[in-house]
Nucleic acid binder design. Structure first.
Lengths: 183, 183
DNA sequence: GTCTATAAAGCGATAGAC
DNA sequence: GTCTATCGCTTTATAGAC
């Protein structure tokens, strides 16, 4: 069938979806072709180094999205408590109350961790650094450790919500974090 | 080379190690053969249904280990706070301060979740049920929700410790849980 | 930039000798 | 219970026509 000309940026969302839903090893090029609506030739035209380059590009895009929509607002907040609350709201939507997983967290637990180690650690380091700012502003003791705890709680809530197939569990975790640290 | 007769139970540890380190999709039968020191014929003799049966058996073995060494002590504890503390110590060793991951948590984030859904959810449900007992005994408010939070924190600590390659992060999380709920 | 055809390797799984 | 050989299929990746 005739196919319209695609832009590389159009592939990012379907690519991310497949990696999120199947993991790095579980995502095959065939799946990635089907999701993007492109043949192998087209996909390899955009990503000459193949699957690894697709995943790296997806990670970079998510990292950028978080930088703009999560990290930057945290760093530049005027009201610390309000900023952390806004982050929790934003993440609840982004992660679909735990129905969607964090692609960085997923990769951290898999065997592809080593290949993407710097992207994964860079992402979490930036998150911790950013979250520390409003926590300190809000007068929280040991803001860096608390930032780590909050991020770990969010990642754990995703794991548990998915394991038990219970989105309410994720939402409860967000409520608890809010009450405990910023209300 | 001549090979000594193997027992099926001898395969469980190497099998578990490969699944933990490579994920379900990432673990190939060749790897599983090499880790167990058995040829494909031998491995399929023990596990006629192949890789899926190997993983299911590994999960059942871990479930059994947790039942005996973690869940049962929690349920039958006389001192609630002491029992939760003992669990945290035990898990710190079991998970090697986050250097080792939880195979159930890993599967929950991957695409094999659906295939092993009941094993995964059963494991976490038993854990929550068991942990609720000593928490209630210790006078903690809303012990079931707190049990869920603690387990999520542990899973999240594994994710974050692995993402940042920092075992101290896991240990700090265990210390925080102890301080917050059972000291 | 798109596609189809194809290559080479690895996959999970099986058969059958010992 | 162990092994080797092999099957059929899918994998990632490439080549080359359009």
């Amino acid at each position: 069938m005739a196919r319209t000309v695609a832009d590389k940026s159009d592939t990012l969302e379907p690519l991310a979806r497949v990696f999120r839903e199947h993991g790095y090893e579980g995502a095959s090029v065939s799946m990635l072709c089907e999701a993007t609506g492109l043949g192998k030739g087209s996909l390899y035209h955009f990503y000459p180094k193949g699957k690894a380059e697709m995943a790296a590009t997806v990670l970079a895009a998510w990292d950028g999205w978080f930088e703009t929509n999560v990290f930057l607002p945290l760093r530049s907040a005027e009201d610390g408590k309000q900023a952390v609350g806004a982050m929790l709201d934003s993440l609840t939507e982004t992660y679909r109350s735990g129905r969607r997983i964090c692609i960085f967290g997923m990769l951290a637990l898999g065997s592809a961790r080593d290949e993407f180690a710097s992207a994964i650690s860079g992402y979490f380091e930036k998150w911790i650094d950013a979250l520390e700012v409003p926590l300190e502003q809000a007068g929280v003791d040991d803001p860096r450790v608390v930032a780590q705890e909050i991020i770990a709680s969010i990642q754990g809530a995703i794991v548990l919500a998915r394991a038990l197939d219970d989105a309410e569990l994720f939402n409860n975790a967000m409520v608890r974090i809010r009450k405990q640290y910023v209300s």
